[in-house]
Simulated assay, not measured.
Amino acid sequence: MRKILEDFYYSNITPCDQQMAPDSEMKRAVDRVSKCEEQLTELLDEEGRHILTRLTRSQQEINSSTALENFILGFRLGVRLMAECMDDNDGDTRIGGEQ
């Protein structure tokens, strides 16, 4: 417990940094998207490339916001689960709620 708190204090915990395994489905999907973007860029004129750049940047913003919200929701769910586990008066009909 102390180690994770120290890492948190020193900003050594960065949940948004992820490493993709080279043989993962995620890596293959990222490679496909990258290849399609390169091919599309070659087909477009300057205005089209500008629009494509704006589109991809906007999608990255959406993805980043979604990832943040999902992280927060997951963290809150974890805290609620822990709080529920600590509740001794949770309706257990056994004496004192203990086994």
Rank of each mutant, 00 (worst) to 15 (best):
R2T: 06
Q19S: 09
T56H: 02
A67K: 08
M26C: 01
Y10M: 01
M26K: 08
V30K: 10
H50A: 14
D45I: 01
R54P: 00
C36V: 09
C85W: 05
Y9F: 07
E42F: 06
I62G: 03
I95F: 07
D7K: 14
Q60E: 07
A67G: 00
Q99N: 11
R28A: 05
D87G: 06
F8D: 01
L68H: 12
L5R: 12
A67N: 03
Q60S: 07
R76F: 12
E84F: 14
D45Q: 11
Q18Y: 07
E46Q: 14
M86T: 04
E37Q: 02
L52W: 14
D17A: 09
E61C: 01
L52R: 13
D23E: 09
E61D: 05
Y10C: 00
R76S: 13
E46C: 10
E37V: 14
N89R: 13
P22I: 03
D90H: 12
A21S: 04
K35Q: 11
G74V: 04
G78N: 15
D31Y: 01
N12G: 12
C16H: 08
E6D: 07
Y9T: 01
Q19A: 09
E98G: 10
I13N: 04
R57Y: 06
T14K: 09
T53H: 15
L77Q: 15
E6I: 13
D17V: 07
A83F: 04
Q59F: 05
K35N: 09
H50Q: 15
S65L: 09
G91M: 10
A83W: 02
Q99D: 05
R57N: 11
E6Y: 09
L77R: 11
E46H: 11
F75W: 07
N63F: 10
G96S: 08
I13M: 08
E6Q: 10
G48L: 03
I72W: 04
T53W: 13
T14Q: 14
L52E: 14
T66D: 03
I4W: 01
T53A: 13
P22G: 03
L55E: 09
L44H: 12
C85T: 05
S58G: 04
V30R: 13
R28W: 00
G96T: 01
C85D: 13
E61I: 04
I62F: 14
M20N: 06
T53F: 15
I95N: 03
I62D: 10
M82R: 14
D23F: 04
N12A: 06
G74H: 10
